[in-house]
Structures are given as structure tokens and as C-alpha cells.
Design a protein around this nucleic acid. Structure first.
Length: 829
RNA sequence: GCCCGGGUGGCGGAAUUGGUUUACGCACAGCACUUAAAAUGCUGCGGGAGAAAUCCCUUGUGGGUUCGAGUCCCACCCCGGGCACCA
């Protein structure tokens, strides 16, 4: 994963993941593979812009400086990147293609403008990303974040959740990629698929007192049907237990029923209070349910035909399902709490199969057997769901329905330091249309509708009450350059709108005065496709050529932080799937194998943070111990994926190991042909172990194998130079600097990295004599040296002859003797 | 609450996937080298009993399967990470 070039330089986490891929790359190159190991910079983004606001230094300057530092540090650490393929997402040559992707998605109906609630900071006068509004307060100034309805750009990521034609869905694709289970689970969870039913219920004028128990609507007493309300449920089997309905405060039906609502002022007050709360506040106030009954109207449960009351409550989410739910307090904990608070009836309609659970103290939320459900009594939950859905469909009340938690991706940002969105808004782009459709006619078009203008179809949008045709910038005019004369201080609207030069343009279609979109794209858009660019970074005609993409992609191994579980990793999958679906590429997953590096904690076991002053700076570690020691120590600390605390004392172990290798190298100036067989066997075992461990990314045990080998080499006064040279080659991916240096001191003219990775001889690994373990009842009592291929009878005979064993047997006859070849004998008494 | 991990010496961690628990490294102790220190090398280092040979116990806890369990199954306790009123 390419880094965000922060002013702080590389941190220990970067060193960890970049060393891992460097070892892998060097290993496979020495194995004769053609390895693409690229690096680049995710250079747009908020920190640079915020820093610019503070210091008035242009973000491109700070970014360039940071990139220079990063590259210098990466070179210091010996990462073998192909810098000729470097990408920088803030470079116009790069973001030209980010804009091209935007248009590609737009032209294919995967990008659209729509209204959305966004996080808004009144003090900074700007929109904030979700991650900058954590805890409901602005990250920068600490003032509360409010929700604001704004027209924004979205990518239709929800369109690719399920497989589409030959393109696997975001959900299904997970099954075929080698990713950590936790990350796949995180994505599934984020997508949040749930299958259920959606059905409608009649809203009627109230004929029964407010709240109170449900009553059957008898002929003639039933109120007038005012409207319908739709609800979504995954537990249709519990419908007979529905004793009230709940709707979200934002539900539009509330206004439509206004004239019928007896307690309008109370209702209005509740909605107003809910509106003021941010989503985060609502969540943090989970403890107690609140709500208000809508008096004057009732809802009819179509299954029981009973009238039930309707409540507004802010725990019902407007943006999920239909924004309204059937409340079954007996079998949903939230409904249970609500019913208790408002003293509403709780009916048991599902019984646990073992009849043990009840709804005395809490809702029984598991599946079970139906009760109090008329002809469905004694049916299992699963069966009842099937039958009830049939009934709903037959009566035209609703249908099967799948809902997802995931919403479309909001990509527009009212920010300066990002790729401009390549759209122009033309108030009169209609000159090529028939006269009847000219000018004012545009005002009659609905926002979001499409109009035809000659061969082109435009979408209509509304900005500040005025209608515009959205005109995509022609590809030949890309990139839309980010103006550098812009005042990027926050003023409450997109900084780009302040640049007249940028903002006021003539329409590329009709040439009339028009205005340019002044929002930029979320930086995650830039990083959603960079892996393609590495294949063909200098291409000026395409984002990458088809042949180059075919040659290099998809990515075989991707390493990066687990914090990207959802955002980046989901977005790049979306881009890849969109490209596949549109026929640009022949694969639909970008990263075949992925691993996360675990975080490196500070020496005190806490997270490294500037405020705690416990940050380990790679520069100072390199100054003291050298780049190789830092690389190797981070690999030696533990498994790549595990969180591990830093230990400054620990690095001395690696430092001593590298020094030892250096000292021993001085002994090998004179060749010796005398060879110790044991070392020879050990070196072949080590070749096997180190190779296999590198391929499995188990660098910690690979290093320990290298240590074992070096300790053994040290013990032998003389051995052929080849033994030590093989050790050096095995060491070189981990510690490239010292290996290269020793290699050259040994008289080699060519780089050690031009050497072929050693092969091991399976014959030399084979043991001829082994220590056979003798157990009695599973406990080790003796070991005997025997030939590997000793026969079962011989082994048993030897075991029973052992003095120690005889002592334990006391002349008893074994019940059974287990013989495991090349391992052990277990005598069962 | 739900979903993913994990619990092995004083510490970071090994364990061929059911076969000698504690590889490798750190720390610690003793010794050698040195006038001395550092560096380096050697030895020891899970717990308990013992002068020793040796014996017993030990992979969070309790149970189970097995000739044999750190590893598999059941229940529980604890820790880390993610999501979280999604009907």
C-alpha cells in the first residue's frame, strides 16, 4: 500500500510492511522471477491542507518535501523499488486518469448527484469526513458537528454488491481471494446484507383510545384508510406479536398525516429534538428509548387485522429499510425496552424448542416454534417465514426483500487539495436541442432526470434553486487542473469556487457561460486505481494499456495496514469490478493475496503517539544500529500480522548477529576444502526452511534459522567458502547492505543480488540416525539412537531392552505398543 | 450485544499441524579474556523436591476424545481488535 506522505516521515509500521515486501521481492528475483515492486504516494489529502491553513504554505510544497523525505528514508532502508514507476496522486498526469475514471463511472450510471446528510462544522465552515467527526466533534476545533443536507456526488457502489453478469459481487468475490478472515468478515459486516420481507399496512383514523391494547377492527368501526406504511422485517415469523409500529422522525409520512395528528405540537417538538442530535449522539444515548405516539391515527396489522398505535422514535433509522418497523416486543430487545417504557402489551408468539426460555425479563430473539399465531401455531420459525411470505404475496401486500447496511460512496469534498471533479454546469446547454426545449424549459425538468441534446444525453441538477445541465468535460480537455492561485482558507464553500479563472468557464458543448464543479474528489478515489497505473505509469493515452495490465495484474501480494479493512480495500474492489463489468479488464478482484502488518506498539505496550512521547523514530534507530538491523529486528519481533511491542534491548540481538557474520567473514579469506558434514546438512536444511518461511511470510522463524546456521558455522574452524557464501545469499533479502558488503569483501565483482537463490539437496537433509523416543503411557522415559529406517519389530525389541524402560515395566507385559515411524514408540501398560 | 483474533518461561516468541513443550533472541547469573571496564566467548536458566542420580508438576480454568492434546470437541474465565439501535 502506498503511503500518505506525512511531514513526520516513515514510522515503524511503514518499515514493517515495506521490509516484508522487499524481502519477498528480492527472494523471487533471485529465484529468477520478474518482480514488479513499485512504490508511490497517496499525496492528496486533508493533513496537508490543514497544515497549509495553519502555516499558509501551499500544500504542494509540503507534500513535495514530505515525498522527498519518504524517498530518502526508503532508500536508506534499502527498499528495492522500481522508482521509474513511481506514482503521485497529486500529479496532474496521474489525476487526469482519476478524473477519467470519474467520467467513466458517470457515463455508465455509476456516479450521480444526490442529496445527503453530511457532517458540517459551523466553526470551520466546512464539511468533514466521517473519520474527522468522531465523537460528534470536529477534529480540528472541537466544536460539535451538525448534520446538513447537501447535494453531493456519489459512486453507486451498492450496484456491485451482488454478482452482475460475469463480474463477481463485492460479497461473492470475497470467497475466492486469499485475505485475512477478519478483513473479509469486516467487509461482509459493512455491507450488512439481510434477507427478509417488506409489506404494507393501512394507516387509519383512530377509533380506539390512544395506545392501549390492540382491538379487532369490527365491521363498521374501522376508521378511514388514510395511507399505507411499509415496513421491512427479517422476522416475519413474529408478525402476530406486533403490538405497535415505529417510524423514524425523518419519515415523510409524518408531514402527510399532519392534519390527522391530534398532538402535532408534541410530535413536532420530538422531531425537532431528534434533528438537532447528530447520528453519533443518538448512538451514544443508547441506554434509554425515547419516542412519542402519533395520536389520531392507527395502523392495522394485516395478519391479525388489529389496530395498533404508531410511535415516532429516534432509534429507528430513516436511511435503512423503509424507515419504519413493525414492533414485536416479545421477540426484539429494542422493541421490548420501548414497550416496557411506554407500557405497551408484549405477546409471546415464539417459544423456544426446549420450552425453557420465556419473555419474562427480556425478549426471546431466537428462532423457535410459533404460538398465538392462529393457523401457524407449532410451525417452526423458518417454515413460518416461508408460508407467511407466500400469504403476503398472494394478497399483494408485499414481497421478499433484501436490504444492505452499506450506502453509496459519497465522493465529493468541499476541499482544495484533491482532484477536481470534471463536470461543468451549464444553465442553458440546449442550443442543439429543438426550440421547444430551449431555455426556461430546463426549469421544468426534474433534478436527476435526463434530457437529450443532439446525440448527447444530459442529466439535470439543481444548484441553489436553479436548474443546470451537467456536462462532462471531454476527455481531450483532461486533466482539469487544480488552480494554484486559490485561497484555500475555509470560507464555507469549496475553495475552488473562489477562483474565477477556475470556476467561470464556457460550456464545452454550447460555448455559453457556465460554471465548473468546485468540489474535489475524496482521496480514496485516487487510491482506488493506483495499482493499475503501476503497470503502465507513463501512458498518456490510457490509464494503463490492456497488455500491460494483463502482464502484471491482478496484484499477487498486497501488504498494508488493517485500518483499511473497509474503506480503501472495498473501494479498490469496486473500481476493479466496475472495470471488469465494462469490459476493460479480465479479472474482477484487484488483490489476490493480502496480509496486514500488525501494529508496532511502544516499549510501554501502548500505542505510539506523539503526545505520549513514546514514538520510535526509524532515523535514530538506523543511526545507532544501521538499516539492516532495523529491518531484521522488525521482522524478528514476531509474526507479521501480530501486534508487537518495541524493545530497544531486543535489537541488540540482531545487531550482534550481523556483527558476528561480519567477524566470521574475515576468517574466510582463505578457502578451505575440508568440510564438516553436519554443517553441510544444516545449510541445506536452512535453505529449505528460509525459502519456505519467506514464501509463507514467516520471517521471524526464517531469521532464527539463519541464527542457528551462523552459530554452527562459528563453531567450525574450517569449512568450504561455499557454505558461508550460501549463508550470505540467504541473509541478503533481510540485510541487503551488509550482505552486499561482505560479498564484495570476499572478492566478488558482481552484486550478491545477481546470484541465484540456492537450491537444497533433499538427500543431504535426510537424517540417517535419529533419536527414537520411547514413551510409557505417553510419557517420555528414554531415547535411543537408531537408523531412520529401523523396522517396527527391531525398534520394539530395542525399546524393551532399554534398562530405563525395564525399570518402569517391572516385568509387566505391555497391553499395546504403538510405533510411529521416525518418531517414537509408546508402550501402553 | 455481534463478528474476528488470542491466552505457552522474567520478556518477544518457537513447536514439522495429534508425537520429546519452551527453538531463536532479550534479560539475568556464573566463568574466561582484561590492571579494570566495554566488547567477545563459554556455561546455566519453566516451577517444585533433592547433595546427587532422579522424581513430580506445567501451555488461562474445568471436563471430554485419544496409546498420546499447546494442537481436536464441550463449557467457562480473561485480553486485544473491528462493528454497533441495521428491524
Amino acid at each position: 500500500m502506498f503511503p500518505y506522505p506525512s511531514g513526520d516521515g516513515l514510522h515503524t509500521g511503514h518499515v514493517e510492511s515495506y521490509t516484508a515486501t522487499d524481502i519477498i521481492s528480492r527472494y523471487w528475483r533471485m529465484k529468477g522471477k520478474n518482480v514488479l515492486h513499485p512504490q508511490g504516494f497517496d499525496a492528496f489529502g486533508l493533513p496537508a491542507e490543514n497544515f497549509a491553513i495553519k502555516t499558509k504554505i501551499h500544500p504542494s510544497q509540503t507534500t513535495q518535501k514530505a515525498i522527498a523525505t519518504f524517498k530518502q528514508q526508503m532508500n536508506m532502508l534499502g527498499f528495492s523499488y522500481d522508482w521509474s514507476r513511481e506514482v503521485n496522486s497529486s500529479d496532474p498526469k496521474y489525476y487526469k486518469w482519476t478524473q477519467w475514471f470519474f467520467l467513466l463511472l458517470y457515463k455508465n450510471g455509476l456516479a450521480y448527484r444526490g442529496k445527503a446528510k453530511v457532517n458540517w462544522c459551523n466553526s470551520c465552515q466546512t464539511v468533514l469526513a466521517n473519520e474527522q467527526a468522531e465523537g460528534g466533534v470536529c477534529e480540528r476545533c472541537g466544536s460539535p458537528v451538525v448534520q446538513k443536507d447537501l447535494e453531493q456526488w456519489f459512486f453507486k457502489i451498492t450496484d456491485l454488491i451482488e454478482s452482475k453478469g460475469a463480474t463477481s459481487g463485492l460479497l461473492q468475490g470475497l470467497d475466492k481471494i486469499d485475505w485475512p478472515e477478519s478483513t473479509k468478515a469486516g467487509q461482509r459486516n459493512w455491507i450488512g446484507k439481510s434477507e427478509g420481507a417488506q409489506f404494507k399496512m393501512e394507516i387509519i383514523t383512530s377509533t380506539t383510545p390512544a395506545s392501549g391494547h390492540p382491538s379487532s377492527a369490527e365491521e363498521g368501526t374501522k376508521g378511514e384508510v388514510l395511507d399505507y406504511i411499509e415496513v421491512f422485517t427479517t422476522r416475519l415469523d413474529t408478525v402476530f406479536g406486533m403490538t405497535f409500529a415505529l417510524i423514524a422522525p425523518e419519515h415523510k409520512i409524518i408531514n402527510e398525516l399532519k392534519s390527522q395528528i391530534e398532538n402535532w405540537s408534541e410530535v413536532e417538538k420530538y422531531i425537532e429534538e431528534a434533528r438537532k442530535k447528530s447520528e453519533l449522539q443518538r448512538i451514544s444515548e443508547t441506554k434509554e428509548k425515547t419516542g412519542v405516539e402519533i395520536k389520531g391515527v392507527k395502523v392495522i396489522n394485516p395478519f391479525t387485522e388489529q389496530e395498533i398505535p404508531v410511535f415516532i422514535s429516534d432509534f429507528v433509522l430513516a436511511h435503512y429499510g423503509t424507515g419504519a418497523v413493525m414492533a414485536v416486543p416479545g421477540h426484539d430487545q429494542r422493541d421490548y425496552e420501548f414497550a416496557k417504557k411506554f407500557n405497551l402489551p408484549i405477546i409471546e408468539v415464539i417459544k423456544s424448542e426446549d420450552r425453557k426460555s420465556s419473555i419474562e425479563k427480556e425478549a426471546f430473539i431466537e428462532d423457535g416454534v410459533l404460538a398465538n399465531s392462529r393457523e401457524y401455531d407449532n410451525t417452526t420459525s423458518a417454515k413460518a417465514r416461508e408460508k407467511l411470505i407466500e400469504w403476503i404475496q398472494k394478497n399483494n401486500l408485499g414481497e421478499k426483500k433484501i436490504n444492505y447496511k452499506m450506502r453509496d460512496w459519497l465522493v465529493s469534498r468541499q476541499r482544495y487539495w484533491g482532484a477536481p471533479i470534471p463536470i461543468i454546469y451549464c444553465p442553458q446547454c440546449c442550443h442543439s436541442r429543438p426550440a421547444s426545449q430551449y431555455g426556461a424549459n430546463l426549469e421544468n425538468e426534474k433534478s436527476g432526470s435526463r434530457i437529450k441534446s443532439g446525440m448527447t444525453e444530459f442529466e439535470i441538477t439543481e444548484i441553489d434553486g436553479k436548474k443546470y445541465a451537467m456536462v462532462p468535460i471531454p476527455e481531450k480537455d483532461l486533466p482539469v487542473l487544480l488552480p494554484d492561485d486559490v485561497d484555500f482558507m475555509p470560507h464555507g464553500e469549496s475553495p475552488l469556487s473562489k477562483s474565477k479563472k477556475f470556476h467561470d468557464v464556457s460550456c464545452p458543448k454550447c460555448g455559453e457561460k457556465a460554471k465548473r464543479e468546485s468540489d474535489t474528489m475524496d482521496t480514496f478515489v485516487c487510491s482506488s486505481w493506483y495499482h493499475f497505473r503501476y503497470a503502465d505509469p507513463k501512458n498518456e493515452k490510457e490509464f494503463a494499456s490492456k497488455e500491460k495490465i494483463e502482464k502484471w495484474l491482478p496484484v499477487d501480494l498486497y501488504v498494508g495496514g488493517a485500518e483499511h479493512t473497509v474503506l480503501h480495500l472495498l473501494y479498490s474492489r469496486f473500481f476493479t469490478k466496475a472495470l471488469h463489468n465494462l469490459g476493460y479488464i479480465d479479472f474482477d478482484e484487484p488483490f489476490l493475496k493480502m496480509r496486514h502488518q500488525g501494529i508496532i506498539l511502544a516499549e510501554d505496550g501502548q500505542k505510539m503517539s506523539k503526545s505520549l512521547g513514546n514514538v520510535i523514530n526509524p532515523d535514530s534507530v538506523v543511526a545507532q544500529y544501521g538499516a539492516d538491523a532495523l529491518r531484521m529486528f522488525e521482522m524478528f519481533m514476531g509474526p507479521l500480522e501480530d501486534a508487537k511491542p518495541w524493545n530497544t534491548k531486543g535489537i541488540t540481538g540482531i545487531y550482534r548477529f550481523l556483527e558476528k557474520a561480519w567477524r566470521i567473514s574475515l576468517k574466510f579469506k582463505v578457502k578451505s576444502e575440508k568440510s564438516g558434514l553436519e554443517v553441510k546438512s544444516l545449510i541445506h536444511k536452512t535453505i529449505k526452511k528460509v525459502s519456505e518461511d519467506i514464501e509463507k511470510l514467516k520471517f521471524n522463524t526464517a531469521i532464527s534459522a539463519l541464527m542457528v546456521l551462523l552459530n554452527e558455522i562459528e563453531k567450525n574452524e574450517e569449512m568450504p567458502i561455499e557454505v558461508f557464501e550460501k549463508f550470505l545469499i540467504l541473509l541478503s533479502p533481510f540485510a541487503p547492505h551488509i550482505s552486499e558488503e561482505i560479498w564484495s569483501q570476499l572478492g566478488h565483482e558482481e552484486s550478491i543480488f545477481k546470484e541465484k537463490w540456492p537450491e537444497y539437496n533433499p538427500e543431504l537433509i535426510k537424517e540417517e540416525i535419529i533419536e527414537l523416543i520411547i514413551q510409557i503411557n505417553g510419557k517420555v522415559r528414554d531415547t535411543i539412537s537408531v537408523a531412520v529406517d529401523i523396522s517396527e519389530t527391531d525398534a520394539k525389541k530395542l525399546a524393551l531392552e532399554s534398562e530405563k524402560i525395564k525399570k518402569y515395566l517391572l516385568g509387566r507385559e505391555p497391553k499395546k505398543i504403538i510405533f510411529v515411524k521416525e518418531k517414537l514408540i509408546n508402550i501402553v501398560l
